[in-house]
Nucleic acid binder design. Sequence first.
DNA 1: GCAGATTTGTGCGTATGTATC
DNA 2: TGATACATACGCACAAATCTG
Lengths: 241, 241
Amino acid sequence: MIKPLNKTTLSEEVIKIILNKIRKGQWRPGDKIPGEISLAESFQLSRNSLREALKFLELSGILHSRAGKGTFLTEDVLKSLHRMELIETLKNDSTLIELIETRLTIEPQLAYFAAERMSPGNIKKLENSLEKSKKAIEDHSYTTMMGWEFHQLIGEAADNKILSNLLTSITEKLKDNRFTYAYDIISSEALLKEIEDHEIILEYIKNKEAKKVKKFIYDHINNRLDWLKKQVKVEGFLNSV
Amino acid sequence: MIKPLNKTTLSEEVIKIILNKIRKGQWRPGDKIPGEISLAESFQLSRNSLREALKFLELSGILHSRAGKGTFLTEDVLKSLHRMELIETLKNDSTLIELIETRLTIEPQLAYFAAERMSPGNIKKLENSLEKSKKAIEDHSYTTMMGWEFHQLIGEAADNKILSNLLTSITEKLKDNRFTYAYDIISSEALLKEIEDHEIILEYIKNKEAKKVKKFIYDHINNRLDWLKKQVKVEGFLNSV
DNA sequence: GCAGATTTGTGCGTATGTATC
DNA sequence: TGATACATACGCACAAATCTG
């Protein structure tokens, strides 16, 4: 079953053209762009298809349309472009190494914030998550998903929406990668080590030892990163995501 | 000039409805959704307007349509939802404190990577940027933009697209905040301090002293964060972005 | 392989509300 | 007030892709 990925719709083509005009500076922030009829004519398509493109760009923060006035580039069209690039990277253009490096960058600091800000309710959630994992290991129903839940809870407790949302996106992307599993599944020994580490992390957080938990998690992820880089070297799988 | 923000188009309403159906689990990954004609009828709008909504959701990674087959939720619709939430946070829902905390989290590590990976070409770019800033200070044409360029170049040299794109988005958002300027503009003394710091950072990077530059930048941003938190307390301006 | 039904992709015409002069 | 330009929205028709028998 092969999907033909080269086929794009007319509206998608128009979106690319418009974005390029903006990138090249032919259209600038605040500029009024031609009316829909005139645009449809110059791009050689119907107004319906053109409007699908304009609507997407409007909802993406690139354009804004006002009935009776016209369609304009937003004042912060450049910000919107950069956000789109971030999304594109997160979606298609990131390597496994980059994803783990991002974890290495944000998770230690998230734990640092969490240790400073942890509420009793959040501590309870972490304890429950850890308890669930322990039981799951005993009856052999443990999955790596449970380990991620623990990290996600730390992210939430850190009370920074940007970083915790980024962690979620990174984690989602890592979930369907075979290397990510390889490290955990390779032995039950590694699993037990994982749980032990989480116990240590929880203890640090409960004691508000922010610096210690930050360093501990950094080393923890860094070890994995080193292990991964070795595997990648062996298998020559550098760019697989 | 007051813009009526309550006015939304029909397609935007439909997008909200569909996203809610997905969040509630009424529609699940891989599901086939009703045909366009049937959907338009049940939402009480024309097929054209409906298609504007579907097109946006398709380009956002929520749906995919195939002529002759139908429209389906993507398998990783949940990932796309999380990415949308990250964008929403970056766009509208982040506080100034969160933005600076994000800088505090990623910039030190970016500099760490940069110190390890810096190429001669990248060093040259940093040197040029710093030189430009120095000259600008002499003839009083320095702007905070120039300082940001330096940090951005470090981000690029770190060779991690996720983190450097995030830094760009964060920086763009910070640019139009009065507090961000306040710190720099308050005195020419602070400006000179800024340049001195950049010289130190560049020196560390050239000598590949990754750990030192990481700690230096962390302290550098942390000082600002403390300063900001004090200002915020005084002015009670906690949620302004 | 072919014919017919279904579904998305695209185009055209038209009516309506809004802003500007 | 009227005339004009524009986005918003609707309805219909047909093309292209896909599935079924």
